[in-house]
């Protein structure tokens, strides 16, 4: 078994913190791993990426070869496209749909989401919405790790252990916020997949997720939402037109 991940984002978004959590989980699991990162000039608001590889046999190259990545994990939608040639034909994309706009020619968001939707094997979460619900906008990186957790090879408890260790120096409140961000991100990712696997289009799933209170998201309701919208298209329009978010259990999972 070998897993190759490209972590992507913008300098300052906490890519190296994501790497810390997965690196240590890999070491904890007794895996071999290598993780190459970018320091120095690019960290000043530039595009930042990290190549992370783990497996039960020796890892040779510190860099993931083109076409060999199992996962592109990005805290930002545009940055996925900078690295998607690394993805193997059956690779996954896990990304935030919260754009980080620090350049004048940032593309239009809906078009970006259409591009990402091409993949099919994609998990999209609105990291800013979820991080805010968790208690701090800066926790967006942990939201994305949470969303990717089901695709990694570690128990959630191991990942959470290293989220905790990462933020332990900053006090219990910061630890709690980041653990919550991780859990909400995980739930949001699974819920999103539930919608898509239930037949909702990826852009519709993104739009719907933005309208559901992140603190209430329960993956078990995903298929029910998909089925309900399938039966009554107006439900989606109704929720999207609403002023505020709705609780996830507005459409209940079958008991």
């Amino acid at each position: 078994m070998q897993t190759n991940i490209i972590l992507a984002g913008v300098g300052g978004q906490g890519i190296l913190s994501i790497a810390y959590v997965i690196d240590n989980a890999a070491l904890d699991a007794g895996f071999h791993f290598k993780q190459a990162e970018v320091h120095g000039m690019a960290q000043r608001g530039g595009a930042v990426q990290s190549h992370l590889r783990y497996g039960d046999g020796p890892i040779h190259s510190d860099l993931v070869p083109t076409g060999r990545a199992d996962l592109v994990l990005s805290v930002e939608p545009l940055e996925v496209m900078r690295y998607w040639h690394y993805l193997s034909p059956d690779g996954w994309v896990v990304a935030s749909v919260t754009p980080y706009v620090n350049i004048p020619d940032y593309p239009e968001l809906d078009g970006l989401i259409e591009n990402l939707a091409e993949f099919g094997r994609v998990v999209l979460v609105d990291s800013s919405l979820i991080a805010r619900a968790a208690g701090n906008l800066r926790a967006q990186n942990m939201v994305v790790v949470g969303a990717a957790a089901p695709l990694l090879h570690f128990p959630d408890s191991t990942l959470e252990k290293y989220v905790e260790m990462l933020f332990a120096g900053k006090g219990q409140k910061t630890v709690d916020v980041n653990i919550r961000a991780f859990r909400l991100g995980r739930a949001a990712g699974l819920f999103f997949r539930g919608l898509v696997d239930g037949g909702l289009s990826i852009p519709d799933a993104v739009r719907l997720c933005r309208k559901i209170d992140p603190a209430t998201v329960d993956p078990a309701h995903g298929p029910a939402w998909a089925a309900a919208i399938h039966g009554d298209r107006q439900l989606l329009e109704q929720v999207l037109a609403g002023e505020s978010t709705v609780p996830c259990d507005r459409v209940a999972a079958p008991a």
Partner: peptide, 21 residues
């Protein structure tokens, strides 16, 4: 031979150079 990939590199992606804070 090169490995198969899920996507070709994006040719005209907006760059994101480093900048002063």
């Amino acid at each position: 031979p090169p490995h198969a990939t899920a996507h070709q590199p994006s040719p005209s992606l907006a760059g994101r150079p480093p900048a002063l804070c």
